[in-house]
Design a protein around this nucleic acid. Structure first.
Lengths: 200, 200
DNA sequence: CTACAATCTTTACACTGTCAAGATTGAGAG
DNA sequence: CTCTCAATCTTGACAGTGTAAAGATTGTAG
C-alpha cells in the first residue's frame, strides 16, 4: 500500500468509511463529525462531498459495511455448525451479541435510528435483508430438525432475532439488572434466551 | 392557566420538556435543537441552562417523562386484566408496541442511545427499572397461572421484554419484511411473538 | 497532447451547543 | 414596607458543525 500523497487520494471513499468507524469507536456517535472524519483521512473538510451526498450517506455506508461484516461472521459460524442445527442457532446468536459488544457505537449506528431514512439507501436495505434471510435459513434448518416448532419461518426468524436483538439492545443500554449479570455468564444468558422458543 | 408574559416563566422546566417532545414528533431527533426548543417555549436560547446542565440533561428529562408515561399506560392495562394473566401479558405488550408507534422519535430517544450516559441520570434509571419491575410482576403472575414455565422471573421478563422490544425496534426501523406485514395484522403478530415463549 | 470529468481545496454561511456577564424578578429578613 | 439575595432569564460571544459554491488539480479518453 503506497503512502498517499497525491491530490487524488485513490480510494478516499473507503478510507472515509474506515476513518468513520475508528472515530465512532473512539469518540462515540455524537463525537463523529464529518470534518473529523475528513481530517483523519488526511483530506479537506469538504472532500467527503465528492463521494457522499451528505453525512447521512456516510453513515449509511458505515452501516452497510457493518451489516456486511455481521453477515460474514454469522454465516461463517453458521456454516461451521451445519450438521448441528441447535448449535447453529446458539452460536449465530452468540456471534450477534459479540458483534454488538465489539463495537457498540457502530452497532448503535446500524440499528438505532441514527440513520434516519434508511429506505433511501438501497444497499443498506439489501444488506440488512440478507442478514434476515440468514437468520431465516437457520431457523428453517432448526425447524427441520424438530428443535423449533413448525410454522412461518419468517415469523419464527423474527422472534429469534427479536429476542437476541432486544437482548443486545438492553445490554448496550445497561438495562440489564446487575443482579442478573452477576448471576450467570453472558453466554449462558444467551442460551437461556433462546431456550425460551425451543421445544422440549 | 394564566398567559405567560412575565420575565419568570413559572414552570419553564416542564414547558421545555413539553416543547421538546413536540419538536421531536415534528422534526425528528436530528431536528431537535436546544435553541428551537427554547424558542418554542417562548424564551431566549440560553434560558434552558437555568434548568438543564446541557442538552443531554434535557433529553434525559424527556426520556424519563416518557418512561413515566409508558409505565402508567402499561400498569393501567395490566391492572385491567388482573384476573386473566395471559391477556395481561398480551395487552401489556400491545400497549408497549402502541407506545412505540405513537411517537417513534420519542421512543427512539428513550432507547436508542441518543442519551449517552444514562447512568448519570438517577431518575431516568429509576423510571426505566420501574418498568422492568412491572414486566417482571406480569411474568410472575403468568408463571403462577402456568402460562409461562417456571424459572427466574428476571430472565423470563428479560425474554418477554426482549421479544417485544426487538420487535418494536425492527418495526420502527422498517426491517419487518412487507410480506409479513401484509400477511397478518400487527396485533396478531404481537400475539404470535409472545406465543413463542408460552406453554402449550 | 488536449479537453473533459472526476476529485479535492478554499471560502463562506447559517446553525448548533455552550459559556460568561449582565438584567430582571420574586421571596424572605429586617 | 423596603432591602437584599438567589433564582431566573437575556444578551453577546465563541468554537465547531453540515453544507453549498467556486475554483484548483489531476487522471484519462479522444
Amino acid at each position: 500500500m503506497p503512502k498517499k500523497r497525491t491530490y487524488h487520494h485513490g480510494d478516499l471513499k473507503n478510507a472515509l468509511i474506515k476513518a468513520g468507524v475508528e472515530i465512532l469507536a473512539q469518540d462515540g456517535v455524537s463525537g463523529m463529525s464529518l470534518r473529523k472524519v475528513a481530517m483523519k483521512a488526511g483530506v479537506s473538510h469538504s472532500a467527503p462531498y465528492s463521494h457522499f451526498a451528505d453525512k447521512q450517506a456516510l453513515i449509511a455506508a458505515i452501516s452497510t459495511e457493518g451489516f456486511r461484516q455481521l453477515y460474514e461472521r454469522m454465516s461463517a459460524v453458521a456454516e461451521g455448525y451445519n450438521s448441528q442445527p441447535s448449535k447453529q442457532l446458539v452460536e449465530a446468536a452468540w456471534t450477534y451479541i459479540q458483534f454488538a459488544l465489539d463495537d457498540p457505537d457502530r452497532f448503535k449506528v446500524m440499528f438505532s435510528g441514527v440513520l434516519e431514512k434508511e429506505k433511501e439507501y438501497p444497499e443498506f436495505v439489501a444488506e440488512s435483508q440478507r442478514n434476515f434471510q440468514l437468520v431465516k435459513s437457520i431457523v428453517e434448518s432448526n425447524q427441520a430438525a424438530g428443535i423449533l416448532r413448525s410454522g412461518s419461518s419468517d415469523l419464527m426468524a423474527l422472534s429469534a432475532w427479536g429476542i437476541i436483538h432486544g437482548f443486545a439492545m438492553l445490554l448496550l443500554e445497561g438495562q440489564i439488572p446487575h443482579a442478573i449479570l452477576e448471576l450467570k455468564s453472558l453466554r449462558k444468558l444467551v442460551e437461556f434466551q433462546l431456550k425460551q422458543i425451543m421445544l422440549a
